[in-house]
Simulated scan of single mutants.
Amino acid sequence: MSEIIDECLRRLDQSLGYLEQALGGLSEEQVWYRPRPKMNAIGNLCLHIAGSEYQHLVSGIGGRPFKRNRPDEFLTRSGYSPEELLGQLREVREESREVVRALTQDDLERGVTIRHTAEAGMNDYTWSIQKILIGATEHYSYHTGQIVYAAKLLQDTDRHLLNWKHYD
Rank of each mutant, 00 (worst) to 15 (best):
R97A: 10
T126R: 14
A120K: 00
E91V: 00
K152H: 15
N69S: 12
E83H: 10
D156T: 09
P37N: 13
A120F: 01
Q155S: 06
I134K: 07
G121R: 01
S81E: 09
I49W: 01
W164Y: 15
D156P: 03
I61G: 06
G63D: 09
S81Q: 03
T113A: 02
P37Q: 11
P82A: 12
Q88G: 15
P82E: 09
G121C: 02
E94K: 15
T157I: 04
L45I: 11
Q55G: 09
L103G: 11
H166P: 04
E98S: 14
S96D: 10
L89K: 01
H116F: 15
P71M: 03
T157Q: 08
I134P: 00
H48E: 07
R77A: 13
P71R: 06
P82H: 12
Q105Y: 03
T144N: 09
E94C: 08
G63L: 07
D106Q: 14
S59E: 04
Q55I: 10
Y142T: 14
G111I: 00
A120Y: 05
Q146D: 04
Y54R: 15
G145I: 09
S59I: 04
D107R: 13
R159N: 08
S81D: 08
L47I: 14
Y167H: 11
Y125S: 08
L161G: 14
P65Q: 05
K165V: 13
Y125R: 10
E94S: 14
I49S: 01
D107A: 14
L161V: 13
V100M: 10
W127Q: 11
Q55R: 15
P35F: 00
E94F: 07
D168V: 11
E109M: 07
L85S: 08
D124W: 08
L108H: 11
N69F: 11
S141D: 09
N123Y: 05
I114Q: 05
I42A: 06
V99Q: 01
L89R: 04
S128A: 10
W164L: 15
V148M: 03
L57Y: 01
K67L: 10
H139I: 14
S141P: 00
H160P: 04
A120H: 12
E53Q: 15
N123G: 14
L47K: 10
K152N: 12
T117P: 00
S128K: 09
I129Q: 09
R68N: 02
P37A: 12
R97C: 03
G87V: 05
S59T: 10
G63V: 12
S96H: 08
N123D: 14
G111M: 02
D158I: 03
R36H: 10
